[in-house]
Design a protein around this nucleic acid. Structure first.
Lengths: 354, 354
DNA sequence: ACCAACTTAGAAAACGCTTTCTCATTAGAA
DNA sequence: TTCTAATGAGAAAGCGTTTTCTAAGTTGGT
């Protein structure tokens, strides 16, 4: 029974920081730092009896390894960063949620940085976040392509959302907003609308650019339909304030930049006594959870956005683990979600639904 | 012109981790680590000429201090954690947003942990997050009072939201849901409703408990009105699925747990052809941004929730800086927000609004 | 011209951990 | 019994900073 000569320490030594450290456990168990570390990390080259002693000491002192020291030694933080242009936007909230949940399942946490749509802040935020973390998810950055290309190399491992880059090893998850908006426009045209209006999003938003491209393609393919462009933004108020412009346009089918804008617009139209979809059809984009609970329920293009956040993590994990990545990035096709806010053009109101 | 004997290093040395460290700058500038550190931290006990040389070297190498090493040396991470029961809930999203924005203004970032309503996970998550950060915001924890009391001491600096504790130095920001629900009930009674129903929230939610207490007080003060209790939850679907129970109850005034539940309920009622507020009045709680864009717009109790997140940071900052805190915690009074979803009881529909 | 006081910058310790290196002990084989 | 190999644990180095300690050099007063 190799009875150790260690001495039980009744008084808990407090290190400079006041917290219990590996050293405290070591003296309590009468072993060295190294042994405590080995035991805590499940290294089996330790005598079971000693290991038990260490574990007992650790438990008694309620020792928990300091993650900062650990990070420094291991060169990893088990944390990833995400920078978003606007945390108030449900889309980014959903991405964050999907990312956070998926990462948590692998023991990673996420650190958030909100640029508040200030594109000049993005590079600084991204760099700072990246240094604190093992990787970075850059979400729909508003900066220019040139800035992005310059920044990207210093951010690896990096996953891009709704932007692309020429740099290698940077997976990029993009939603095909161009196709989605064409699907929506096609749906409205099928309903007999010939005069559409697009209520645009933030000018610096790349996803807005994709929608515009999609609409150009649509116009080319459907010369008989008119597609008007209206200035806009990305929130409720944008939609609400656009009522006059929408009514003035004479369009009967309105493609709102996203669901929020569509909701604001519908609310404004309702106040004016305009019937949706009787007088005007409205479509959104994203299919946020609220979309199925508006009155009327909102026709939109559903983006599997939480899944996208999850995919972002999977790509990131592959990067961190330096795994071979078969699909470095993906393209997500929105799915047309036809609800009650779109109906036949200029048809008289009937009891039977569209 | 004391020409230094340092030697310009044309080859960039790469440390083990492959990143540029303080050592690289030191050799490039021909000085010691210590001097580089001093310069980088604006310590003025350095010869301006040397400082310039160091800055030049740092700029040329694009040196950025490693935050992990820095954290270890300084004993702080410039990060705070927040644990929420459900990141999908707009209330917690808003708190996170307010917290994140306020913290960012003081150079702090926030790390998120989502417990997914699993109360047994909360203690582990909280402890882990706390160790990684300089402080923790514990948001509406679902754990029991006893567990909370036991956990709290190990989490300091800690700010509690919608829970209280007997522990000292733990500011606690609580919304007075009890008063808010009484205000809403009073509003409905003023409109002539005499049979109310409360669509309850998650059983473990403390804020639900506060609402129940408030309703007890209300019943005591208004013996002539009936207040029925209905099982519930906190999301859309809860409200949507409660339609039958609500109709069966015969109540004409429905107090939904929150705005989400109210929206789900209104959507369900709409599908059944029940007019709101003509047949039944519905109220929410929280005044989430969507509440003013529902049809009809939602009568609710407005909680200054983003401000609450901001306050949480201010309390946390005071704790971290060990400042004297005049108001260790605050109580937030919801403000009655009367919109279109509530109207006179059983009155025939008229063109003139309620 | 000499000594005290002050500047300035390098050396080294500290932060809390992991891991390599090294050495002592023990088991096993010849 | 003796030598080798294997095992287990401590010493120490390292992760990248900040900061204290120390010593060299400089200034200024007498």
């Amino acid at each position: 029974m190799a009875r150790g000569t260690y001495e039980r320490q009744t008084m808990v030594r407090r290190s400079a920081t006041g917290r219990i450290g590996i050293a405290d456990v070591a003296v309590k168990a009468g072993v060295s730092h190294a042994t405590v570390s080995r035991v805590m990390n499940g290294n089996f080259t330790v005598d079971p009896e000693i290991a038990a002693r260490v574990r007992a000491a650790a438990a008694e002192l309620k020792y928990q390894p300091n993650p900062v020291g650990r990070s420094l030694a291991l060169g990893k933080t088990d944390t990833i960063g995400i920078v978003v242009p606007d945390l108030a936007n449900p889309t980014f909230q959903a991405i964050l949620r999907g990312l956070s949940r998926a990462a948590a399942q692998d023991g990673y946490r996420v650190l958030i940085a909100d640029s508040f749509e200030v594109s000049s802040e993005e590079a600084i935020l991204a760099g700072e976040a990246r240094r604190r973390c093992d990787g970075l998810v850059l979400c729909a950055p508003r900066m220019s392509d040139a800035e992005l290309e310059e920044l990207v190399p210093s951010l690896h491992p990096l996953v891009l959302i709704n932007r692309t880059t020429t740099a290698a090893d940077v997976p990029s998850l993009v939603v095909d907003y161009g196709q989605g908006v064409q699907d929506l426009a096609g749906h409205l045209v099928d309903l007999g609308h010939t005069r559409l209006a697009f209520l645009a999003g933030p000018p610096r938003s790349a996803s807005n650019g994709l929608r515009l491209q999609g609409l150009e393609a649509f116009k080319a393919a459907h010369p008989q339909v008119e597609v008007l462009m209206l200035e806009g933004g990305s929130d409720f108020d944008t939609g609400h304030e656009a009522v006059d412009a929408v009514l003035d346009s004479g369009a009967t089918g309105i493609l709102a930049f996203n669901d929020l804008v569509a909701m604001g617009l519908m609310s404004g139209l309702h106040e004016r006594g305009v019937d949706v979809p009787g007088d005007i059809s409205v479509t959104g984009f994203d299919d946020i959870p609220f979309a199925r609970y508006t009155t009327p329920t909102l026709t939109t293009a559903a983006v599997p956005i939480t899944e996208l956040g999850q995919q972002a993590w999977h790509q990131m994990r592959a990067l961190i683990r330096k795994e071979e990545n078969d699909a470095p990035g993906s393209r997500y096709q929105p799915r047309l979600e036809i609800r009650a806010s779109s109906g036949p053009a200029k048809a008289p109101r009937t009891a039977a639904h569209g």
